[in-house]
């Protein structure tokens, strides 16, 4: 407990030194809240433009540091299980709670990562995915397979119909090219869900390849119902 308080104190001192946020204000906030909220939802501290920019840089640095920790701990980054893929994307997407980001890991025949790219980034509830761009990168790096991933800033780990439909669209495009879509990972609420783990990754094309942009990020139906219930019960 004492160690926890010391950690928080150091965190706050570091945060205020780097961003210019007022110490008293953040100290007051963390009395009843998780200190990480300040990084994940910076607007709660009503920062000015410069402070917001510094928090953004700090978040980017933490994400980059997490990737490097993974790179440094392995000779090769091999995503040969849904657990490894989930942990990998949790490190990359776990801290992003103010926007939606869609990423793709392009893999070789041994499921080693050739390259991981952010393919699109949108607002808190929606992002647009451009299959043409994904195809361009997949062909450029001569990949054998890919793993899709995106975050749900709202914290939901459920697959929305749009998430499933996007996965099918990717399979429709890449199956004829013999590029496998191995998994689709959803990161939300500090954890992840894997489509492969649930056995719902499509393995066959259902229709012809469609390269139109895909809107992603609608709230899963179940979550909508729950939200309504919660509101109603108040």
């Amino acid at each position: 407990m004492k160690q926890d308080i010391q950690h928080t104190e150091k965190f706050l001192k570091g945060l205020t030194t780097l961003t210019g946020l007022p110490y008293k204000k953040v100290q007051q906030y963390v009395k009843g809240n998780n200190p990480l909220n300040i990084l994940e939802h910076p607007h709660i501290m009503e920062p000015n433009e410069k402070q917001l920019e510094k928090i953004g840089l700090l978040n980017e640095f933490i994400a980059s540091y997490n990737i490097l920790k993974i790179y440094e701990s392995n000779e090769k980054v091999t995503l040969n299980s849904s657990t490894l893929a989930g942990q990998y994307f949790l490190a990359l997407l776990g801290g992003i709670k103010d926007k939606e980001r869609f990423m793709v890991a392009f893999l070789d025949s041994g499921n080693n990562i050739i390259e991981t790219k952010t393919m699109s980034e949108g607002s808190i509830g929606q992002t647009a995915v451009y299959p043409r761009e994904i195809l361009k990168y997949a062909l450029a790096c001569d990949c054998n397979a890919m793993i899709l991933a995106h975050n749900h800033p709202g914290g939901s780990k459920n697959f929305s119909p749009e998430d499933r439909s996007l996965t099918q669209r990717m399979v429709d495009i890449f199956h004829p090219l013999e590029i496998k879509v191995l998994d689709h990972i959803i990161v939300g609420g500090g954890s992840y869900t894997s489509m492969a783990e649930r056995g719902i990754v499509p393995c066959q094309s259902k229709g012809t390849a469609n390269y139109e942009e895909i809107a992603l990020g609608a709230i899963p139906v179940e979550e909508k119902r729950n939200r309504f219930k919660n509101t109603h019960s108040r």
Partner: peptide, 21 residues
């Protein structure tokens, strides 16, 4: 050094708190 130490504290706290989730 002081500024990097500030970053170090933040990384440690993020690691610790997120690791616990």
């Amino acid at each position: 050094y002081e500024k990097l130490k500030s970053i170090k504290f933040i990384i440690e706290t993020v690691d610790e708190k997120r690791g616990r989730v």
